[in-house]
Design a binder for these strands. Structure first.
Length: 207
DNA sequence: CCCTGATTCGC
DNA sequence: GCGAATCAGG
């Protein structure tokens, strides 16, 4: 691939949006992040000296994607005024064992992504059988079910070692992938791999 | 370890 | 000009 004007424009735009070199390379295709960085320098685009931890940057950026086919008739905006109640703790006496912090492992606060496992072929039912002990735990609360918190990565943020379990509607802009670490060459994290690759014995019951 | 950008240097 | 290899760092 070569640096056509088109590709250069895209490069400039994405770099301007703050996307990482690898993400840009992924979208351009046919080039590595090194190529992107090299080109960025040759084009003398803004250097990025900042800190920005490698792992968290991509999550903050690259999420908003405008380009929405505007309909002729304007749709009444729902007015997202619903600001979650501050939920302030009574300053004075703080009951010791209270305030059980919700696992803030990753994902700053992706609103609602639990959604519907997009076009998932398997119907996953919370059954003790299928869900055993799993590595990254989170929310062991209610049903005793243990589900890991996904990183909710976008397609371009996936690497060979991230879980590619789909989350949400593939046609939605909110579509994401689990993104947790996958072991070895598995396409899924330990948790999702277990769901995806069910031993025949378990499958009978889990169905 | 995984990822980030920066730089070098042979092609 | 290009980008792999390498460096420096979170």
């Amino acid at each position: 691939m070569s640096w056509t004007d088109e590709r250069i424009d895209l490069l400039k735009r994405l770099w301007g949006e703050g996307q990482s070199a690898s993400q840009i390379a992924g979208q351009l295709g046919g080039v590595t992040r090194n190529a992107v960085i090299g080109k960025v320098h040759r084009l003398k685009l803004d250097s990025r000296l900042k800190s920005a931890t490698a792992a968290e940057m991509p999550v903050l950026v690259a999420v908003p994607k405008p380009s929405r086919p505007v309909l002729v008739e304007s749709v009444p905006v729902p007015a997202p005024e619903i600001v979650a109640a501050p939920r302030i703790l009574t300053p004075v006496q703080a009951t010791p064992m209270q305030a059980t912090p919700v696992p803030a492992t990753t994902a700053p606060s992706r609103p609602t992504l639990h959604a519907v496992m997009g076009a998932n072929a398997l119907k996953i039912e919370p059954e003790e059988d299928v869900l055993g002990e799993v590595e990254t735990i989170a929310e062991p609360r209610p049903s005793g079910e243990v589900v890991p918190i996904s990183r909710n990565l976008t397609l371009v943020q996936l690497s060979e070692r991230t879980c590619k379990w789909p989350l949400g509607d593939p046609l939605s802009a909110e579509f994401r992938f689990c993104g947790n670490h996958s072991h070895d060459a598995s396409p899924y994290c330990q948790y999702h791999a277990r769901i995806a690759f069910q031993p025949v014995s378990e499958r009978r019951r889990a169905r």
